[in-house]
Design a protein around this nucleic acid. Structure first.
Length: 813
DNA sequence: GCAACGAGCGCC
DNA sequence: AAAGGGCGCTCGTTGC
């Protein structure tokens, strides 16, 4: 008997969607994609149609079928393939061929790797998804592949990509033609052709530039070739190996055309290292993409790939050119050409990159205007030159101090490690599972937390700190101490510096989902992230000779933004009154009203607890986690005070009781915005779409987004003001410069005699009024100055950071 | 021997 | 069951 076909839809459909094989529900109901996977597909089409302004009756346009029409044992498609192709699959594919020949849809959607393989002969859904491909099963038809909807259930991060792919499918289904972009590539052209092209390209409005490089053993980059494209249908590729070409490259880079890059900070730096200045850089498609899809922010992308520390993509949406090509253009996947031995193929690859970059710019401009984030893009572009400057300037490291710290910590580690090994009866590596053996087997202590991913017991500092409170044991403290000392050495004190002993961290405006800057090691592989340097080693960062460091931070910035977002009059009142908000809150949370609460709270460490409670509670942190972070702070700073669960709970309850608007307004409005549009807007015009699964984690991400983003943007806006040399009102004197961004703080240096003036300028630039719910918010700033970057201490760090007024007094005396 | 991955942890 | 968010880096383990 012929098996029943699990299919649905009309035989005059525009689109045929092809899955792998039916599941149990599909078999029972005789229809494909009836469960959760079907819902995902349905929803994506509805959204795509809405985005395209179409009202399309899905079921009249879409024919859905599978490669096979029986369920393989264990739902494992491999059953059909190994040890050899099974007849059930071959029958299914013949049926599919027949169906396609009869229906002749405008578009076939391959849902997953197997349909991709049998419809196009291509393999690797991650590479080929989104590409418009000729169908090899039935010639003359076209295929777009994307993830199988069921995979979205497992890897929800793919949801955003899936949605953009389905949108492409809805567009492609309008016409049957493959109609792929055609481009001409002029590879190392003869002088006449080259000169003609140079003339034309210099006169063009836009010119994209893309370099190919090889890393040298000394960390520098050798340029192989440079691609230029003035129109998306052509590109010129100039190998670096002739002096004529190098001159041509210099001419093109310095011409008046508006330049387009993909991750230009890299290209521009490398060109500069080779004596070539790029003028009129106006568009970076990585920045454009980030302003459209902030979810692409985060590491683990081509930036980190460049550094050789690539990790698996974690972001819902990637920002690399390969991905952008798949969503902004109709150019099929071609990145494998990069790894060819064939020189012409490689040069063509370079030219295609340039042409695609050129093409993407135009699409991005339209989309940025439609989406309403063109100002966000321009803001990030404005940051680029000053961030490059900061990276290239760097900060001086006192290497004597660096080595002294390392020696001190190594000595301590040696002693503690001896103590630990003797106590444990064997050697214990504190960064290995040895610790779990020691805690949970040898000492028989209880497991209190497990990894979400692997379900393995956790032995992190919170667990160990909690164990130490309940079952005190000297080895526990030793583990924590060794871990943190090893960390200081491995992650900071062993950092490779440049030959002039400067720390040159890079800054990346597309590095986060919020618009904060990300910081990491630079393109030559020296230095590291400068935004997580521990306080206890910051003293090795020093001002240049004759100069002094300043660190100016926004006071309680995120908490203020939350108060304004919540329209919480009482909290706004406390901020506006100029009182010490934490002492004030501590008094109220812990019932110290009417007493001399400031002294009491300060002495009791409750002020610190109040700070933690406010910050954590705003973003959905629970009491248990609150005390962990508060007590960790206390341990690190040597404070004897510990927060108990009871006190934390009471404090948190009081916080929400006193300021109910946090939940009633702020949280509620975030949830409503998410429910209605899955999009949040910030006071500075950022828009972030949330593609994640609808759960509390998504809510917590969303609560944190606007405050974090607003403060991050605020500090960057101030940096732009100070960089912009035309603006007389924030003009810094020669020798004064910004050195780093600490999210809510700016770090810089200036000549010692200019410190008052410089600080006044920077503070003025940082004083940026915002409107939140039509109410003005201006966040005050605190200033510290010193010769090194650690806090002042009369005995241990007399050259450290202190309040400006105190420093002036001290330096007069 | 290398690459991927998880755990852990520094900062705001 | 319990769960703040946002990052980047290093080590140790594991799997090929």
């Amino acid at each position: 008997m012929k098996p029943e076909l699990i299919q649905s839809g009309p035989r005059d459909a525009y689109i045929v969607a092809v899955g792998e094989s039916p599941g149990r529900n599909e078999i029972e109901q005789g229809k494909p994609f009836v469960g959760a996977a079907g819902e995902i597909l349905d929803r994506a089409f509805t959204q795509a149609n809405r985005a395209l302004g179409r009202t399309l009756l899905l079921h009249h346009e879409l024919f859905i079928t599978n490669l096979a029409h029986i369920q393989p044992p264990g739902n494992d498609f491999d059953y059909f393939l190994h040890p050899q192709l099974r007849p059930e699959l071959m029958l299914g594919i013949l049926q599919l061929k027949k169906d396609l020949e009869e229906i002749r849809p405008n578009l076939i959607i391959a849902l997953g790797n197997m349909p991709l393989r049998f419809l196009t002969g291509k393999e690797g859904i991650g590479k080929w998804r989104g590409s418009i491909l000729p169908c090899t099963l039935v010639s003359g038809l076209k295929v777009v592949a994307t993830f199988h909807p069921a995979s979205i259930l497992r890897v929800y991060d793919n949801n955003g990509v899936f949605q953009t792919d389905i949108r492409r499918c809805a567009e492609e289904s309008l016409t049957p033609e493959l109609n792929l972009p055609k481009r001409d590539f002029y590879i190392d052209p003869i002088a006449d052709v080259r000169n003609e092209l140079i003339l034309e390209m210099c006169r063009a409005e836009w010119l994209s530039i893309d370099i190919e490089t090889v890393k040298q053993t000394d960390g520098t980059w050798h340029i192989s070739c440079v691609g230029f494209s003035d129109y998306a249908d052509r590109a010129m590729i100039l190998p670096w190996n002739s002096s004529d070409n190098r001159l041509a490259i210099a001419v093109l880079c310095s011409c008046q055309a508006k330049k387009i890059f993909q991750n230009g900070m890299y290209d521009i730096s490398v060109l500069l290292d080779n004596g070539i200045k790029v003028k009129n850089v106006v568009w970076d498609i990585m920045y454009g993409h980030h302003a459209l899809y902030p979810e692409c922010g985060g590491s683990d992308d081509e930036v980190t790939e460049l550094l050789g520390t690539k990790r698996v993509a974690r972001s819902a949406l990637m920002k690399k050119l390969e991905f952008q090509t798949s969503i902004y253009t109709r150019e099929p996947f071609y990145k494998d050409d990069k790894y060819t031995d064939d020189l012409p193929t490689f040069y063509t690859y370079n030219g295609r990159d340039a042409a695609v970059t050129r093409e993407i710019r135009d699409v991005q401009e339209r989309e940025l205007r439609d989406f309403g984030t063109i100002e966000v893009f321009e803001h990030e572009m404005a940051l680029q030159p000053l961030l490059m400057h900061m990276t290239r300037a760097g900060i001086q490291i006192d290497t004597v101090e660096m080595n002294r710290l390392k020696a001190e910590y190594e000595e301590k580690i040696g002693r503690l490690q001896d103590f630990l090994d003797k106590g444990a009866g064997r050697s214990v590596n504190v960064k290995s599972p040895d610790v779990k053996w020691l805690l949970f087997e040898k000492l028989g202590l209880p497991v209190s937390k497990r990894s979400e991913k692997t379900d393995k017991p956790s032995a992190d500092k919170y667990v160990i700190e909690a164990l130490n409170t309940k079952h005190p044991h000297p080895l526990l403290g030793a583990i924590l101490e060794i871990r943190s000392l090893r960390d200081l050495i491995e992650r900071y004190l062993d950092t490779k510096l440049d030959a002039d002993n400067r720390w040159r961290a890079s800054f990346d405006p597309t590095g986060t989902r919020t618009g904060r800057l990300a910081s990491r090691s630079n393109i030559y592989g020296t230095s590291n992230n400068i935004q997580n340097i521990p306080e206890r080693i910051r003293r090795m960062f020093v001002a240049d000779p004759g100069k002094i460091l300043f660190s100016i931070d926004y006071s309680q910035a995120e908490a203020r933004v939350v108060a304004w977002l919540a329209r919480c009059e009482s909290l706004i009142g406390v901020f506006n009154s100029g009182q010490d908000i934490h002492s004030r809150n501590a008094a109220r949370f812990f019932n110290l009203e009417g007493t001399d609460y400031e002294i009491k709270t300060l002495q009791g460490g409750l002020r610190f607890a109040a700070k933690r409670i406010v910050h954590g509670s705003n973003y959905g942190m629970q009491a248990q986690r609150l005390i962990e972070s508060a007590n960790d702070d206390a341990r690190r700073t040597g404070s004897p005070h510990r927060l108990t669960l009871d006190i934390a709970r009471r404090g948190q309850e009081t916080y929400f009781l006193l300021y109910p608007e946090i939940k009633d307004n702020f949280w509620r409005e975030v949830r409503e915005a998410l429910r209605d549009t899955r999009t949040l807007n910030t006071p500075f015009g950022r828009k972030r779409q949330f593609f994640g699964r609808w759960d509390e984690k998504l809510m917590n991400e969303a609560y944190a987004f606007v405050p974090q983003s607003t403060v991050g943007d605020l500090a960057c806006k101030a940096m732009i003001r100070l960089w912009d040399n035309d603006k007389e009102q924030w003009k810094l004197r020669p020798g004064a410069e910004l050195l780093a961004n600490g999210h809510d703080s700016l770090i810089g240096q200036c000549k010692i005699e200019d410190i008052r003036w410089t600080v006044a300028m920077v503070r003025k630039a940082m004083d940026i009024p915002m409107l939140i719910h039509r109410r003005e918010l201006r966040i005050p700033t605190d200033v510290e100055v010193g010769h090194n970057w650690s806090d002042y201490n009369e005995q241990t760090n007399p050259d450290g950071l202190m309040e400006l007024s105190k420093w002036l007094q001290k330096s007069r005396g």
